[in-house]
Each structure stands twice: as structure tokens, then as C-alpha cells.
Amino acid sequence: MDFTEKTKTPHPPMNQKLHYSPSSLSQILLFKSRLLRFLNKIPALFIPKCELIFRHLLFRIGFEEEKNFHVVLNSVIAGRYHVTEYLGAAAFSKALQAHDMHTGVDVCIKIIKNNKDFFDQSLDEIKLLKHVNKHDPGDKYHILRLYDYFYFREHLLIVCELLKANLYEFDKFNRESGAEVYFTMPRLQVCGVLLTF
């Protein structure tokens, strides 16, 4: 093979999001962090100021000081998801309700905070959901469905089916309305057995 011959590789359109496996996402971030460490060893005297700014924008590792994804209602994420409602926040993520413009279905988008530990936990969550969904293709056990995941504006986003109420709110409603307690030990044990299928 002639190594002087240039080959063109097809590039996706600018508005198309790229899909990576969880392991390749961590490899990309590791490569970018190593490259940034190498570039930071180069004395600043040899690099013009505009090139320093370009280098900073180009080689951001994704775990900078800004850990929050600013949510704007009625905005479109990744050219596909129209944000309709802010659902809430947890320790390491925010949840949005959005309308998938490709399928016409309402979905939940979980935006992971920009932190290495949270990112790693979320990759494990993606692997677990993919495994569980793979073994329940007919949705027989009614386990949360993972639709999509991608990296957008330095945040990992997980797209899954939209559920109505979380377990805490459901249990609180049951207790306040005087209904029977739903989460009893025998019921939780049955759920545990069903999840091992």
C-alpha cells in the first residue's frame, strides 16, 4: 500500500450527533486529557495567543469548572429532542421531558452533571439498561426502556421512556391518602426475584 496516497474518510454532517459505546467515550476523553497535558507542557512563549484560545476550545476534556447544563424550555437538543418541561434534579443529574421529533414520542432526558465520577456511574447505568432491555425485548417485565444516549455540550445525556411519577412521590401519595402500603417486604422480594430472570 502506498502511504503517500491520501484517503478521504466520510464525515457526518455537522448537525448529526455521533454515537459511541460507553467504553469508547471514556477512551476518547482519556485521549483528550492526555493530549491536553502534553500541550500544556509546551512553553507559552512558542504559541501565539489566538492559537492558545483555539487549543483551549478544541481540546477541552469535558470536565471543566462549569458542571451544569443550562436548560432552556422549547429549545431543541441535538437537532432531535424538543424540550417541553423541566422535571427535576437529583444528586448527579437533571431530568427533562422532551418530544422526540423523529418518532413523535415523549421521552425523558437525563442530563448527567459534568463530573468524572458521575460520568463513570452513568456509563455503568447505560450498560445495565442495555443488558436488561436486551433480555426483555417484549417489555414483559415492564423495565425502564433505554432509547438513546449521547454526548452533547460536554454532558452525557441518557434518553429513556417517560414515566409518570417516581417511586418516592408514589409512596408519599399512598401514605398521605390512607391507601395500603405498596412497598412491603414480600412485594419487594417478588420484584427482586423477577429482576433476576
Results as ranks from 00 to 15, higher is better:
P13G: 09
P13K: 08
N15G: 09
N15C: 10
Q16T: 08
K17A: 13
L18F: 06
L18M: 14
L18V: 13
H19R: 12
H19A: 08
H19V: 06
Y20S: 05
Y20V: 06
S21H: 06
S21T: 07
S21N: 02
S21V: 01
S21K: 15
S21A: 07
S21C: 05
S21Q: 09
S21I: 01
P22T: 12
S23N: 11
S23T: 11
S23M: 08
S24V: 02
L25D: 04
L25W: 03
S26F: 08
Q27D: 02
Q27V: 05
I28T: 02
I28L: 13
I28V: 12
L30K: 13
F31V: 07
F31A: 12
K32V: 15
S33L: 09
S33P: 11
L35Y: 03
R37I: 00
L39I: 10
K41E: 05
K41N: 10
K41I: 00
I42F: 08
I42T: 10
I42G: 09
P43C: 03
A44G: 01
A44D: 05
F46Y: 06
F46P: 07
I47Q: 05
I47K: 06
I47H: 05
P48A: 01
P48M: 03
K49E: 10
C50S: 12
E51G: 03
L52K: 03
L52W: 02
I53T: 12
F54R: 15
F54H: 14
R55Y: 02
R55S: 11
H56I: 03
H56T: 13
L57Q: 12
F59N: 15
F59V: 15
F59M: 15
G62P: 07
E64R: 04
E64S: 11
E64D: 14
E65D: 14
E66F: 14
E66A: 15
E66P: 13
E66K: 13
E66R: 15
E66Q: 14
E66W: 08
K67E: 07
K67N: 11
N68L: 10
F69D: 00
F69M: 02
V71T: 01
V71Q: 00
V71I: 07
V71E: 00
V72L: 10
V72R: 15
L73F: 04
N74G: 07
N74S: 09
V76C: 13
V76W: 01
V76N: 06
I77P: 00
A78Q: 02
A78C: 06
A78W: 00
G79H: 07
G79L: 05
Y81A: 04
Y81V: 01
Y81C: 00
Y81K: 01
H82C: 06
H82Q: 02
